[in-house]
Amino acid sequence: MSVMNDIDMAAPRREAWRPGKVFWGVLSFATGIGLWWLATVLGFSELPDPFTVLGRIVELALSGQLWVDMGASLRRVLIGFILGSALAVPVGFLMGWYKVARAIIDPWIQFFRVIPPLAIIPLAIVTLGIDEKPKIFVIFLAAFLSSVVSTYQGVVSVDRTYINAARVLGAKDRTIFLRVVIPASTPFILVGFRIGLGSAWATVVAAELIAAQSGLGFRMQQAQLYYDLPTIFVSLIAIGILGLIMDRIVVRAEERLTHWQERI
């Protein structure tokens, strides 16, 4: 930053100001909301206008309802995601490292991967009851399945030359695993986390639409019953923003942990 300032001061008026990424992003966003407002004012659409939605946001935020809903959804996602990833990483390593483990576990994972997590809900409700357990379980499953596949892809695609380079320096299996396989597959694992978190978030909202007494999905479902469009909008916006924030956090962590990677 300071370097940039120095350059600016050293060479004032060298070239005209050029709008950057942020400028275009903000402009695009503002235009979108403008069009939305226009459409509602001109009566093209049944949708609530932006100011009504803003008013509802303030209302729900002040009453605390919004925070309670967000908290309930986030809590489920985080518990399910953390449990799912925590199991996915060791299982993925096991599958990548031992061929037998891969042969035993892989068919199951391939099978469950093609079942949408939501399709598990009826089964989960019948067997686990109607409280938090079935929802957390399907999120756990969604996060686990995405992370386990990428972890094991990461392990099997570790470059042979790294392993050989470690072996000729005297490394044995244990060290190779800890010092080569784990760091070399970290980028894959983090990509898996990102996908896993995304699918966990998608799953929680859908699960709440089907079976919940709290959360953003539940709120939307309630609003639907009462034709309460502004509240549906508020929930959608909250879902989008929270999803975006979680994704950014994982991307940041990714950049931090894999800064050594050559990027094109």
Binding site: D159, T161, A166, V168, A184, T186, W260
Partner: peptide
């Protein structure tokens, strides 16, 4: 026996 590989094989994370 030290080995030097054509592809360098440096550990990029170190």
């Amino acid at each position: 026996r030290g080995v030097i590989f054509q592809q360098y094989a440096l550990f990029p994370w170190l």
